[in-house]
């Protein structure tokens, strides 16, 4: 299936988490922190650490490791507090 990341089309294997889709595409970070602007991606991978926050279909601050991908998901990297 197809999804977009910051407007770019990428392939997504059905059943995978959003984090796994991004990881499989070679991405290792998809947000920056609000104080230092440091890049963050997967850390705990099981929903505990909140490092992998991402914007999906306009909703910011979702844990990419917990959400199963759906056809046509619009995924956006996010900065700071994550509000548009």
């Amino acid at each position: 299936m197809k999804v977009t990341v910051d407007g770019r089309d990428i392939d997504a294997e059905p059943g995978r988490s959003i984090a796994a889709v991004l990881h499989a595409d070679g991405l290792r970070s998809w947000r920056t922190t609000r104080v230092e602007g440091s890049p963050r991606g997967l850390f705990c991978g099981i929903g505990v650490c909140f490092d992998c926050l991402v914007t999906i279909n306009g909703r910011p601050n979702l844990r990419a490791c917990l959400i199963t991908v759906r056809e046509g998901d619009v995924i956006e990297t996010q900065e700071g507090v994550g509000r548009a």
């Binding site: 990881h23 290792r28 970070s29 963050r40 850390f43 991978g45 099981i46 490791c65």
Partner: peptide, 12 residues
């Protein structure tokens, strides 16, 4: 980015 917990790597 690239540093993960061992359980996170296993979950992946």
């Amino acid at each position: 980015p690239g540093v993960m917990t061992a359980g996170g790597a296993q979950a992946l």
